[in-house]
Design a protein around this nucleic acid. Sequence first.
DNA 1: ATCCTAGATATAGGAATCCTATGTATAGGA
DNA 2: TCCTATACATAGGATTCCTATATCTAGGAT
Lengths: 110, 110
Amino acid sequence: MAISKIKRGSAELAILSVLAEERLYGYQVAHRIAERTQGELRFTLASLYPMLYTLERRGWIKGAWENSTSGRKRRYYRLTAAGSKQLAPLRREWEGFFRAIARLTGVAHA
Amino acid sequence: MAISKIKRGSAELAILSVLAEERLYGYQVAHRIAERTQGELRFTLASLYPMLYTLERRGWIKGAWENSTSGRKRRYYRLTAAGSKQLAPLRREWEGFFRAIARLTGVAHA
DNA sequence: ATCCTAGATATAGGAATCCTATGTATAGGA
DNA sequence: TCCTATACATAGGATTCCTATATCTAGGAT
């Protein structure tokens, strides 16, 4: 797990980004992130759930229980208006950070 | 300090990158990083020195005391051959990470 | 002459972020 | 019947970087 060392701080952006597009439950959030990044970014469920609780406590996302057809209850999360407002400045911070690393080392995303 | 939240893990890459170009002492390393990134990436000296000691203990950089003309001793660090070998895979890891974030959120460095 | 700022290195202690380990429970296929 | 995938949850810890603090020198300002 080489990536695990350098992915710190990206969880918040990752979760808000996927929830900005679609309402998802916890298990789905983890899978969506791994799938979308082709496995390069991967959060374990045990670390994801506490993050979801934190984001909900801040009012950036909102969860609601729903009974699925398969018996098991699922807690669906959606981005709140407050969370949506946070996403834009967060993206700008990351862009600045990427620019800085690129200037320093020549590392680029493309 | 908004950036401080998301720069985690970048210190190693930043230090090795500037030392790959030039032999520098601790104080200079911090200034070089801040200057090169136009202040977007900034490490305090109190956090930088312990990082230098760690990198030296790993054998990736090597420090040597030198007397400057201004009385005060300086410890100059240079990248070792082992450190140089680490830099390439580290860059690739960061490129993968950048690609992943870009796919997930649309954030790009350019 | 004295104070203050910039330069230069150093350590202690702690906050933030994410992980491993572990636990519970259900549905469905082999 | 067992195993895997699904689904949520908590405790405790590792890593990374910070704030606070300390020491010492050189040089300019007052």
